[in-house]
Computed example of a mutant assay.
Amino acid sequence: MPASVGTAEAEVQYDPAAELDRMGIPVVRLWLRDTWGVWSPKRRAVVIAAGLSPAEVRCVLAHELEHILAGDTGCGGRDGLRAERRADTLAARKLIGLSDYFAARQWATSEAELAEELGVTTWILRARGADLEGGTAWLATSRTAG
């Protein structure tokens, strides 16, 4: 791992947990069966699955924050799919800086190694890669969150 690129640097650049805290939106950890996280406008809280890794938590919170910023109230139907794609794409842009992405891509030997270096999940890494290649149409649904 080159000294100039690191997970700690990426986390300093964008901290979705701090953003949610500044907005007064609590994060609640619960056992969730079918998703990693959800924004509950009714309760004005983000619920995330218990047992997630730090990178997973960071990505889920960034994804849910994008739902909040967009004013999303649900993720069902055709509009829900668009909202999921948008949340993944915008979260990935904030979580993965271009300089960090391309620097680490030069030496990382696998997708998993690249994601670990950037402090993100492979799903968010793929969303960033798809975005850089012109779109996220390949994403059928979000595995990051709801």
Rank of each mutant, 00 (worst) to 15 (best):
2 P>E: 13
3 A>Y: 04
4 S>G: 06
4 S>L: 12
6 G>Y: 05
7 T>S: 13
13 Q>Y: 07
16 P>N: 03
17 A>V: 05
19 E>T: 01
20 L>Q: 11
20 L>W: 10
26 P>R: 07
26 P>M: 11
27 V>D: 15
29 R>Y: 10
31 W>R: 05
31 W>D: 15
32 L>Y: 02
34 D>H: 10
34 D>R: 06
35 T>Y: 04
35 T>P: 06
37 G>M: 10
38 V>I: 06
39 W>I: 00
40 S>M: 10
41 P>N: 11
42 K>H: 07
43 R>C: 07
44 R>L: 11
44 R>K: 05
46 V>T: 05
46 V>Y: 11
47 V>H: 04
47 V>E: 03
48 I>P: 04
51 G>I: 12
52 L>R: 04
52 L>A: 05
53 S>V: 14
56 E>T: 06
56 E>I: 08
58 R>L: 13
58 R>M: 13
58 R>I: 10
60 V>L: 01
62 A>R: 00
63 H>L: 01
65 L>N: 03
66 E>S: 02
66 E>Y: 02
67 H>S: 08
68 I>V: 15
69 L>W: 07
74 G>L: 01
75 C>V: 11
75 C>D: 03
76 G>S: 14
80 G>K: 00
81 L>T: 05
81 L>H: 04
82 R>Q: 11
82 R>E: 01
84 E>I: 07
86 R>C: 07
87 A>L: 01
89 T>S: 04
92 A>C: 01
93 R>V: 09
95 L>C: 05
96 I>M: 03
96 I>D: 04
99 S>D: 04
99 S>P: 03
99 S>A: 09
100 D>K: 10
100 D>T: 02
102 F>E: 05
103 A>R: 09
103 A>E: 11
104 A>N: 08
104 A>Q: 05
108 A>N: 00
113 E>L: 10
113 E>S: 09
114 L>Y: 05
116 E>I: 11
116 E>S: 08
116 E>A: 15
119 G>P: 12
119 G>R: 15
121 T>F: 09
122 T>K: 08
123 W>E: 14
126 R>Q: 10
126 R>V: 12
129 G>P: 00
129 G>N: 03
130 A>W: 07
130 A>L: 14
130 A>V: 07
131 D>K: 07
132 L>D: 05
134 G>V: 09
134 G>N: 08
137 A>F: 06
143 R>K: 14
145 A>R: 07
146 G>K: 07
